[in-house]
Amino acid sequence: MDLDHETYARWLDRMVRVAFVLTTAAFAVYFFGVLPAYVPLDTLPSLWRLPLAQYLERSGAPVGWAWLPLAGRADYLNLAAVALFALMTLVCYLRVIPLLPRLQMAFALAQVLVLLAAMSGLV
């Protein structure tokens, strides 16, 4: 197998395993009420049927990266675990870019820019 394929597969495999364990642990903390949630669990059923704009207004939930300082709350701890999955492609691309032929490297760099734009909240 090509080195770029093997490296991508190895890094992704490890990250998925770690993220699965962390997400399971974070959800147990949330479900069993080990840590308090920013939006209390018993009020969620009255909020999750609302359109996004109304949900944000009534719950006071943050947008953009403003959730990060709330990662000590059970719901945002879980969001942090979920965000790990959205981060994995970026990490794999950054790792394999030096291993790719020049043309593929250009595509991969453009993909990294797209991912960074999406992460930043500019789009």
């Binding site: 669990l41 969620l44 944000l56 879980n78 969001l79 979920v82 965000a83 999406a118």
Partner: peptide, 14 residues
């Protein structure tokens, strides 16, 4: 995009 706009509810997603 969904995460940044607050459209990810962990109780549904996880």
């Amino acid at each position: 995009v969904y995460i940044n706009r607050g459209a990810v509810l962990p109780l549904i997603v996880v």
